[in-house]
Amino acid sequence: MKFLLTFFGVLLCFSCKQEGGNEVKEKQVLVEKYSFSELEPLLVATKHKPKVVNFWATWCAPCVEELPYFLKLEEKGLADVVLVSLDIPSMLTSHVVPFIEKNKIKSQVILLDDPYSNLWIPKINKNWSGAIPASLIIAKDTSVFVSKPFAGYKPLAELVKKI
Rank of each mutant, 00 (worst) to 15 (best):
K2V: 14
F3Y: 14
F3I: 15
L5D: 06
L5M: 02
T6R: 02
F7C: 10
V10I: 15
L12Q: 09
S15M: 13
C16N: 11
Q18K: 06
E19W: 04
G20L: 07
G21N: 13
G21V: 06
N22E: 15
E23K: 03
V24Y: 03
K25M: 14
E26C: 10
Q28M: 13
L30R: 12
E32W: 04
E32G: 01
E32T: 08
K33T: 09
S35C: 11
F36V: 04
S37N: 10
L39I: 09
V44Y: 12
A45L: 03
T46S: 14
K51W: 08
V52W: 01
V53S: 03
N54S: 10
N54W: 01
W56S: 00
W56R: 08
T58F: 01
C60F: 01
A61S: 14
P62S: 03
P62F: 06
C63W: 05
V64I: 12
E65R: 07
E65H: 08
E66P: 04
L67S: 02
L67R: 03
P68N: 09
F70E: 06
L73G: 01
E74N: 10
G77W: 07
L78K: 12
A79G: 00
V82T: 14
V84Y: 07
P89M: 07
P89T: 07
S90D: 14
S90V: 08
L92G: 10
I100H: 03
K102S: 15
K102V: 11
N103Q: 12
I105M: 09
I105G: 12
K106F: 02
K106E: 14
S107P: 07
Q108D: 06
I110H: 01
L111V: 03
L112E: 13
D113E: 12
P115K: 10
P115A: 09
S117E: 15
L119Q: 15
W120F: 11
I121T: 12
I121L: 08
I121N: 08
P122W: 05
K123E: 15
I124T: 04
N125Q: 10
N125K: 04
K126I: 06
K126F: 03
K126H: 04
K126M: 11
S129Y: 12
G130Q: 08
G130S: 02
I132E: 11
I132L: 09
A134H: 05
A134G: 11
L136N: 02
L136V: 00
I137V: 09
I137S: 01
I137M: 05
I137R: 07
A139M: 12
A139K: 07
K140H: 15
K140Q: 15
D141F: 01
K148Q: 13
K148V: 00
P149A: 04
P149G: 03
F150P: 01
A151P: 03
Y153P: 06
Y153L: 12
P155T: 00
L156A: 04
A157S: 14
A157H: 05
E158T: 01
K161E: 10
